Computed example of a mutant assay.
Amino acid sequence: MDRKYIESEHIVDRYLSGDLTVREARDFEKFCLDHPAYLQALPIPVRLKTRLSRRPVEGSETGVFEAIPSSATRAAMEVVEDDDFDPDEAREESRRFNFGVGLNRVVIMALLVAVVAAGAAAVVFGLQASSLADQLQNASKEMTATQMQAPGSVQRYKLQMVKAKPSAPTFAPGWMNPPQLLDISIDASEGKIAQYQITIDKTDGVRVMQIKRIMRDSNKEVRFSLNSSAFGPGNYLVKVEGYNWRGQTQDVGWMMLGLE
């Protein structure tokens, strides 16, 4: 007989009620005698613990008979009046003890689940905080890169348009540090259009600027200037449109600036 068997078979309750066989009762008494610490933890009256801590009486029952209380149980029953021992109360005390043990296990499991959940939440929060920090750092870098600065020099570029929207830069000066003032001239010698509209979008679709009603000069060129520090690193699509006699715009050509 061991502790697991005692708990699973409700040996303590059955012992108090006298429902054990003689051999079961003797095995339980022997276990209590061999394990005094376990005996002291049992929810049974102190006087019964005292009797179970003593050696059994010589000649006590050892055979297997149905529902015959052991010598220690009978001895305890014989002193009910003197010891104020109530078997029902003892069984109720044992039941409360077992219930408390089970409740403690439930509480411990609930606490473990809560600790695991809190740990998982902390990990998720840490990952989100790290991601947010990276986003803020990247945004700060981009703001620094696109902060308007006075150009350190002026550089003139004469560019040619293409008829179809390009997928790669047609003009790639790269990232300029210190910034430059880009004096751009576009060849507009073909056709009779005199006024143009320039629209500059980043390749991700973000509108950067739009210049309307630019007149073609006497050299039949459309000329405008850009501060390179007004643009962040990346590629920029330049759409050139012309105004017809009705004031409506029509596509004339395309360019792509590579500033990275």
Rank of each mutant, 00 (worst) to 15 (best):
D2N: 09
E9K: 09
H10P: 00
I11D: 02
I11Y: 09
L16I: 03
L16C: 04
S17C: 02
G18E: 15
G18R: 03
R26I: 01
K30D: 09
F31P: 05
L33T: 08
Y38K: 11
Q40L: 09
Q40H: 04
V46E: 10
L48W: 07
K49P: 00
E61L: 13
E61M: 10
T62V: 14
G63R: 14
V64A: 11
F65E: 03
A67W: 05
I68L: 07
S71R: 15
T73K: 11
T73N: 13
A75H: 04
M77K: 14
E81C: 00
D82L: 12
D83Q: 05
P87M: 01
D88G: 02
R91L: 02
S94E: 05
R96C: 08
N98T: 10
G100M: 14
N104M: 13
L112G: 13
A114P: 03
V115Q: 15
A120V: 07
V124F: 07
F125Q: 07
Q128C: 07
Q128L: 11
A129G: 04
S130P: 00
S131L: 05
L132V: 01
L132I: 02
A133S: 08
Q135V: 13
L136W: 14
L136I: 05
A139D: 08
A139W: 07
E142N: 14
M143S: 13
M143F: 15
A145C: 09
A150L: 02
A150D: 00
G152H: 06
Q155E: 08
Q160F: 08
Q160Y: 11
M161I: 11
M161N: 01
V162G: 07
A164K: 15
P166R: 10
A168M: 14
P169I: 07
G174D: 08
G174W: 12
M176Q: 06
M176C: 01
P179Y: 14
Q180I: 13
Q180Y: 06
D183H: 05
D187Q: 11
A188F: 15
G191E: 07
I193W: 11
Y196H: 11
I198C: 12
I198T: 06
T199A: 06
I200L: 06
D204R: 07
I211Y: 15
I211F: 15
K212E: 12
I214T: 09
I214F: 09
D217C: 06
S218A: 12
N219C: 11
N219I: 03
F224P: 00
S229T: 00
G232Y: 05
G232K: 02
P233L: 09
P233I: 02
G234D: 01
N235Y: 06
Y236D: 01
V238A: 04
V240Q: 04
V240E: 09
E241A: 07
E241T: 03
Y243F: 12
Q248R: 13
L257K: 01
G258I: 04
G258M: 02
G258R: 09
L259Q: 02
E260W: 04
